[in-house]
Design a protein around this nucleic acid. Structure first.
Length: 748
DNA sequence: ATTAGGG
DNA sequence: CCCTAAT
C-alpha cells in the first residue's frame, strides 16, 4: 500500500510499468450524480441586498453626521477619504525600531520553509529532478520575518530584476536603511452607530520603520535589497507579483526551476489566492463604502462568507496567527496582506513622528485616521542627520462592483479580485508631497528638499498611486442584465482614469483637488477627469450618498485605446519630472485639508490619488460606450492575461503530447498531478487540469477517424500509444474494480 | 489542492 | 479551456 502519494515513475524503459497500486479513478470511487445547484438563494440574496443596503444607508446617514469630525463632509468626499485611510497604517520611524534579530530569525524560518518534505524528495528522485537551488539565495535575500512567504520573496529578490520593483517604487532605500515590518492588531471595539464607518475598516496596522540619513536622495536606487526594501516590495507589490508570472512563463507565477514544488502549487494558485483575497476583502471591510452590502452578504450567504463583524475578528485573528507563525507554509496573500493587499494602496498620509517607534500602537489609529501625533519635534534626531517619518496610514480605494442578480458569489469574488489585481497591477508609485506640493525632483536629498527640516516634516505627505492601469477595468459580464442596484447607466459605462493621463500638466495628480473645492482645481487639460461628485452628467447612483461610487469618473468618450496606452502615468510623469526643474510643483491649495482632528496630524493632501484606483465595472457593453469598453477590456487583457476571462489558447505541441503520453503510460490517467510534476514540471502554463483535458482530447482524437480530426495533426504513432495506454488503464481500472467487487467480470 | 466530468 | 462538484 502506498503510505504516501508517491509517484511511481517506474523504470525509464517503457514497458508499461504501472504503479503497484494505482488508485481507482475517482469517477469509480465516487460516481455521484451531479446536481446543479439552483441559484435561487443567490438571486434572492441580491434582492434582499438591495433592500438592506437602502435601509442601512439611511441609517448610516443619520448616524454619521454625529461623528464627522472632518467637516466638509457635505461632499461626502472628505469624509469618505478619511475613512479609507485606516486600512493600513504605515509608519516610518527611527532606526531603533529595527530589530535585526527578527530578520535573523526569519532567515531560519525561511530556510525551513524552503525545505521540502520527503515525499517531494522522493518524487524528485524518481523524476530525476534536481533540488531547488534557490534556498541560499532566497534565504539570504529574504530577511524580514514578516515580509512574506519564503517562496515568492526569494523569487523576487533572487531573480526579479531590480527594475521590476524600481518602477513602482522608486525611492528604494539604501543599505543604511533598516526597517521592520510589524503588524499589530486592533482590539475589537464595540460598534456603535457612529463608529460604524470605522468599524468597517481594517484595523490592522503595519509599522514600517525606516531610518535613513537626510542625505538620502529621494531617488536613490539601492543596489541591493534591504530589509526595508524587501518588505516594501513584498507588501506593496505582492499582488502584482502574484499576478505577473514568473520569470519566463507567461502565465504562471511559478518560479520555474527554482522551486518546482511550490511552483506546482502555484500553477493553480492564482485562483485560490484570488478566493482568499476576496475573502479578505469582504471580511476586511474592504467594502467599507458599502458596509451594508458586506454585512448583508455575509449574513445571507452562509456558504463562503461569514457575518461581517464576527468575521472581522476571525479574519483578523487568522491573519494574526499567520503573522505569529510566519513559518508555516502559506501564501503571500495570507501573510502580509497588510500593506499590499488590504492596505492596498493609495492615499497615504504621513506624518513625521518624532516619537519613538511603534509604541504608539493602535490606540490612536484605532479610529482609523492617523493615530500618531506628529510633533515637529523630530528635532532631536537632526543631530544625527536623520529624518524620521511616520506614515500614519494609507487607504485603499473604493471598488465599485456591479453584478447582476444572477451572478454567483463566485463571480462576485472574481470581480472583486479582478478589480483589485488590476488596480495594483504594476504596483504603486510613491510620490512625495511637501507642503501640499509634490516634490518632483527625485534627485534631491532630503536636506535640499527641506524635508530634513522639522518644520516641514509636518507637511510632508506621500502619494501612493497605482503604477499603471490608470484606467479602471471595466468588467462585463455576459449574462448580466442591468442590475437593479445600479440604475445609473452612465455610471456603469464610465471608466476611471488617472487624472495624470494625457494631461499636459505633469502633476495633475496634485492639481486635482480633493472635493473640497470641487473640480475647479482640475487642470484644464485634465478636465476630462472630473469628480463624479461634481460631474453634472454623472448622476449620483443610488450609492452616491453611500460613497460607494468612485470619485473620479471620466467620460469614456475621451478615452481611446491609444490614450490608455499612453496613459501610463509613470512614463508621463517621470518624463515630465525630468523636464521640469521645479523641485516643487504647486499642488492644489486645498490639498492640505488638515484633518480637523487634532490628533491626526497626518496629511492626506492628495486625496485625489484615491480616485485613480476606483473601479467601475460596466454592466453591459451596450450603448455608445460599448466599443470602448471592450477595447479597454481587451487592453486590460493584453496587459494582464490573468484577468482575462479565458487563458490564451496554447495548443499542445507534438513534443508536449509525447511527454504527456509517456507520462500517462507510466502513471496512468488519474494521476494528473504526478503527470504534471513528472513531465510538465517546467511548463508553468500547463496545469494538471490542462493535462487531463489534453489527454481526454487525445483519447477522443485517437478514436475518431483522421478525417474528423482538426488542428495540428498528431502523429499517428502517438495516437496509437494513447489508445494503448488508454485501453490498458481502462482495463486496469476495471480489474481494480473487479477486485473490489468480485461480482463484476474481468476482462483479462 | 486534486480529480473527474460536463460544457 | 472553463467551471464545478466532490474529495
Amino acid at each position: 500500500m502506498l503510505l504516501k502519494r508517491k509517484p511511481d515513475y517506474g523504470p525509464k524503459t517503457f514497458a508499461y510499468h504501472f504503479p503497484s497500486m494505482p488508485r481507482a479513478p475517482r469517477s469509480i470511487r465516487r460516481r455521484s450524480s451531479v446536481t446543479k445547484t439552483v441559484k435561487d438563494s443567490q438571486i434572492c440574496a441580491f434582492e434582499i441586498l438591495a433592500t438592506v443596503a437602502g435601509k442601512l444607508l439611511l441609517e448610516r446617514e443619520s448616524c454619521s453626521s454625529s461623528n464627522v469630525t472632518l467637516g466638509n463632509d457635505q461632499l461626502g468626499y472628505v469624509k469618505d477619504a478619511a475613512e479609507h485611510e485606516q486600512l493600513v497604517e504605515v509608519r516610518i520611524v527611527g532606526k531603533d525600531c529595527f530589530n535585526q534579530e527578527k530578520c535573523r530569525e526569519s532567515h531560519e524560518y525561511n530556510e525551513k520553509d524552503l525545505s521540502y518534505d520527503e515525499v517531494d524528495k522522493d518524487m524528485e528522485q524518481a523524476c530525476g529532478m534536481s533540488k531547488p537551488t534557490l534556498l541560499e539565495d532566497g534565504t539570504k535575500l529574504v530577511s524580514c520575518s514578516h515580509c512574506s512567504s519564503p517562496e515568492k520573496p526569494s523569487r523576487k529578490l533572487d531573480r526579479g530584476s531590480p527594475t521590476s520593483y524600481g518602477k513602482s517604487f522608486n525611492s528604494r532605500v539604501h543599505n543604511e536603511i533598516e526597517a521592520q515590518l510589524e503588524v499589530e492588531k486592533e482590539t475589537a471595539r464595540n460598534l456603535v452607530c457612529e463608529d460604524m464607518v470605522r468599524s468597517c475598516i481594517l484595523e490592522d496596522q503595519v509599522d514600517l520603520c525606516i531610518k535613513y540619513p537626510s542625505t538620502i536622495s529621494s531617488d536613490c536606487s539601492a543596489d541591493e535589497p534591504t530589509c526595508t526594501d524587501l518588505s516594501l516590495r513584498n507588501s506593496f507589490f505582492r499582488s502584482r507579483n502574484d499576478v505577473n508570472l514568473g520569470c519566463r512563463d507567461d502565465d504562471d507565477d511559478k518560479f520555474s526551476g527554482c522551486n518546482p514544488h511550490s511552483a506546482n502549487i502555484k500553477a493553480i494558485g492564482p485562483k485560490h489566492c484570488m478566493d482568499r483575497k476576496i475573502k479578505r476583502l469582504l471580511s476586511a471591510k474592504y467594502w467599507k463604502a458599502a458596509p451594508k452590502l458586506q454585512e448583508f452578504e455575509l449574513c445571507n450567504t452562509d456558504g463562503e462568507l461569514k457575518h461581517v463583524y464576527p468575521k472581522r475578528k476571525t479574519s483578523y485573528q487568522r491573519e494574526r496567527s499567520h503573522l505569529e507563525t510566519p513559518f508555516k507554509k502559506r501564501t503571500l496573500f495570507d501573510q502580509s496582506p497588510v500593506v499590499s493587499y488590504d492596505g492596498g494602496s493609495n492615499a497615504e498620509s504621513i506624518s513625521n513622528s518624532p516619537e519613538k517607534e511603534k509604541n504608539e500602537d493602535n490606540s490612536g489609529s484605532a479610529n482609523g485616521v492617523s493615530s500618531s501625533v506628529v510633533g515637529p519635534q523630530a528635532s532631536s534626531d537632526t543631530r544625527d542627520s536623520h529624518v524620521k517619518f511616520r506614515i500614519e496610514s494609507f487607504s485603499i480605494p473604493e471598488v465599485l462592483i456591479e453584478l447582476p442578480e444572477t451572478a454567483t458569489i463566485n463571480t462576485l469574488k472574481k470581480m472583486v479580485m479582478e478589480a483589485v489585481t488590476f488596480i495594483l497591477e504594476d504596483g504603486l508609485n510613491v510620490g512625495v508631497v511637501l507642503q501640499g506640493k509634490k516634490v518632483r525632483d527625485d534627485k534631491k536629498t532630503l536636506l535640499q528638499t527641506g524635508i530634513a527640516c522639522h518644520e516641514n516634516l509636518d507637511q510632508l505627505g506621500f502619494i501612493l498611486e497605482p503604477n499603471s492601469s490608470q484606467v479602471s477595468l471595466s468588467i462585463q459580464h455576459e449574462d448580466s442584465p442591468s442590475s437593479p442596484l445600479f440604475d445609473s447607466p452612465q455610471l456603469l459605462t464610465r471608466f476611471l482614469v488617472n487624472p495624470v493621463i494625457g494631461a499636459e500638466t505633469p502633476d495633475v495628480l496634485q492639481d486635482s483637488d480633493p472635493p473640497v473645492n470641487g473640480t475647479e482645481k482640475l487642470v484644464e487639460s485634465n478636465h476630462e477627469a472630473s469628480l463624479s461628485i461634481h460631474d453634472g452628467d454623472s448622476p449620483p447612483a443610488p450609492y452616491d450618498s453611500s460613497q460607494l461610487l468612485t470619485r473620479c469618473l471620466v467620460n469614456p468618450d475621451t478615452i481611446t485605446p491609444d490614450a490608455l496606452r499612453d496613459s501610463d502615468p509613470h512614463v508621463n510623469s517621470s518624463e515630465k519630472h525630468v523636464e521640469s526643474n521645479h523641485e516643487v510643483v504647486p499642488a492644489c491649495a486645498n490639498t492640505t485639508l488638515e484633518p480637523k482632528t487634532t490628533h491626526s496630524k497626518a496629511l492626506v493632501p492628495i486625496l485625489e490619488s484615491v480616485k485613480v484606483l476606483a473601479v467601475v465595472p460596466v454592466n453591459q457593453n451596450t450603448g455608445r460606450y460599448g466599443n470602448q469598453n471592450s477595447g479597454q477590456y481587451e487592453l486590460a487583457q493584453r496587459r494582464r492575461p490573468e484577468l482575462a476571462k479565458r487563458r490564451i489558447r496554447r495548443p499542445f505541441s507534438v513534443t508536449e503530447v509525447e511527454a504527456l503520453v509517456q507520462a500517462v503510460e507510466k502513471l496512468g490517467p488519474g494521476r494528473w498531478r504526478d503527470v504534471k510534476i513528472c513531465a510538465f514540471d517546467n511548463a508553468n502554463h500547463r496545469t494538471y487540469v490542462d493535462l487531463k483535458d489534453k489527454w481526454k482530447t487525445l483519447v477522443h482524437t485517437a478514436q475518431i477517424s483522421p478525417q474528423q480530426r482538426r488542428g495540428k495533426p498528431v502523429p499517428q504513432e502517438l495516437l496509437d500509444r494513447v489508445l494503448r495506454a488508454h485501453a490498458y488503464w481502462t482495463q486496469h481500472q476495471a480489474r481494480q474494480q473487479g477486485k473490489r467487487q468480485p461480482g463484476s467480470s474481468k476482462i483479462v
